[in-house]
């Protein structure tokens, strides 16, 4: 009973906050509600025995990405934003497309057939601790994708600097 209540609380809060996020007029409010949303998603990860990912969720999403969003929002004119139109004129079409995709996906859930079970049973992970187990898989079986991820991050650093830096007058 208690696990179901725990899940339902998180599910209701996550869905409600998602709707709140996409309907706020002020982007700062959206970012702050998103912070609460990420904490609830981290709670769901803890419930799924993924405590390393819960920590990563809080540190990386709530700590790094949302701060990035807040920094950029500081540059835009909030006063102008508060008086502008919230959505594009054709928003009912967008909502209809979204709801039809949701109907299709939710109807398809019943057809799901799970594949074969893997090695990482709850007892095995508990004996080894989760972070160590995930690190073993990441560094032994997925070492090459891991190195590629570092290249993606390098490209992001260089790209962000090139895009956002001020152009010198002599460069033109």
């Amino acid at each position: 009973m208690l696990p179901i209540l725990f899940f339902l609380y998180h599910a209701v809060v996550i869905i409600a906050l998602s709707i709140v996020i996409i309907t706020r007029r002020n982007p700062v409010h959206s970012v702050l509600w998103m912070l609460v949303l990420f904490f609830h998603i981290a709670g769901l990860y803890l419930f799924l025995n993924a405590e390393f990912l819960a920590a990563v969720q809080v540190i990386l999403y709530a700590g790094a990405i949302l701060v990035l969003f807040l920094f950029v929002i500081m540059m835009l004119n909030i006063k102008h934003e508060l008086n502008a139109d919230l959505s594009i004129g054709e928003w009912p079409i967008g909502v209809a497309i979204g709801l039809s995709v949701m109907t299709l996906t939710v109807l398809g859930i019943g057809k799901f057939v799970p594949g074969p079970m893997g090695q990482a049973s709850i007892e095995a992970v508990k004996a080894e601790t989760h972070t160590k187990a995930i690190g073993r898989v990441l560094y032994m079986d997925y070492l090459f994708p891991f190195e590629l991820a570092s290249i993606i991050l390098l490209i992001a650093i260089v790209g962000a600097i090139v895009l956002a830096k001020k152009e010198k007058a002599s460069d033109r």
Binding site: I15, S18, I22, P27, L86, G94, V95, I97, G98, L99
Partner: peptide, 12 residues
């Protein structure tokens, strides 16, 4: 889906 709707309909 909520994220998708937000991406389609918002201007900001």
């Amino acid at each position: 889906t909520i994220g998708m709707i937000g991406f389609i309909i918002r201007r900001n």
